[in-house]
Computed example of a mutant assay.
Amino acid sequence: MAWPFFALAKKAWMQPLTYKKGDISIEIGPGPKGVATIYDKEILLYIASLMVSKVEAGKAIGQEFSFSANDLFSVTGVNKSARSYTRLSEALERLQGTQIKTNIEAGGEGEEGFFSWLQEAKLQYSKGEGGVKRLKAVKIRLCDWLYRAIMVDRQVLEYASTYFQLGPVERRLYEVARSLCVDGQTTIPLEDLRLQMGYQGSSRQFKFALTKTIKEDPIPGFRFEIEDQGLGTVTAAGRTVREYLVKIIPESTVKRLSS
């Protein structure tokens, strides 16, 4: 949740994404279908929920998983239309094609060079009458880095069930709030929040979007306040920019994503 690994877009995002702050460095490169989006991440969240369920049941867990598209759609609230199956195929291609390079360690180990979220992704079909294809199962293999992050670090936070009803910016805002407020409310500079969310627009656009979100209040378990810190420093362009802080206040216990 803490770091911006996914494009905040509904459509294909073809530009590279970067995040560098302090000791953290993240580079995301697009595959043929673009960078994996915050909506594509639903598949990884579903797999994580399967892994947690197996751990709690005392079952052995590898990096390979097989599940039905209908089960995935039921958890994420996606309708079972032909378009949904096409989007699933595109999402798997982006998750496998996206190239990630980061110095963030997982399971006490780092990765040199680039890796993808999925080492393998397949849609297994059967043929019915007239040669019509029917999707039987989705088969994937998680990358080593993500597998270690879930199985070794065991720092996967719980998601509210209403997360899947949020838009891309609201989803990311929820994730950052959830990761920052483990020990209670916190305050973060507006620009730092924009960078940590991976918001690609300007600071002005982000403040407008955040103000609108605060007014609508759609984020489960949290409320937000923007505090005006008065006039800031003069920029190289000769403009004086106001400084803002964002207070993130937890309101309730977040329910766990059920698989």
Rank of each mutant, 00 (worst) to 15 (best):
Q155W: 05
I214D: 10
W13K: 12
K122V: 06
L50Y: 05
I104P: 03
A36C: 06
S179C: 05
K122R: 15
E27H: 11
Q124A: 13
E227A: 13
A149Y: 08
F222D: 05
V176A: 03
S25H: 13
R94I: 05
Y125N: 13
V75T: 06
F206G: 03
Y174K: 04
P189N: 08
E227Q: 13
E112L: 10
Q99L: 12
G97E: 07
R87K: 07
D192G: 10
A82M: 11
S116H: 02
V169M: 07
R94M: 00
S53N: 14
F222Q: 10
R256W: 10
Y159C: 00
V78Y: 12
K101T: 01
Y125T: 04
V78P: 06
L72Q: 03
L190N: 04
G58N: 10
T235L: 09
E42C: 14
K133Y: 04
T162Y: 04
I28K: 00
R148M: 07
P189S: 11
E243R: 15
L231R: 15
A91V: 00
E120M: 15
K139T: 10
D23C: 08
K80C: 10
S179Q: 00
I28R: 05
G113R: 06
V75S: 04
K122P: 06
P168W: 02
A12V: 04
S258W: 03
L245Y: 08
K136F: 11
V246R: 02
D144H: 11
T162F: 11
K127W: 14
G221H: 07
R83F: 08
A7L: 09
E191L: 09
E93W: 00
V138H: 00
A7N: 05
E90G: 03
L118N: 05
G97W: 00
G167T: 07
L257V: 04
R141I: 13
A48L: 11
W145D: 07
Q165M: 10
Y159H: 09
K136G: 10
Q96W: 01
E251N: 11
E42Y: 15
L142P: 06
Y163C: 02
L231K: 14
Q15K: 15
S66V: 01
Q155M: 13
I248K: 02
K136N: 15
E170D: 10
K255F: 11
W145N: 01
T253P: 09
K101I: 04
K10N: 14
L142R: 01
Q99V: 06
R148Y: 02
G131L: 08
A237K: 15
K101W: 01
I188P: 07
V52L: 14
S252L: 13
G58E: 05
I100T: 06
G167R: 09
D144I: 02
K255M: 13
T186V: 15
D40W: 03
S252V: 13
K101F: 02
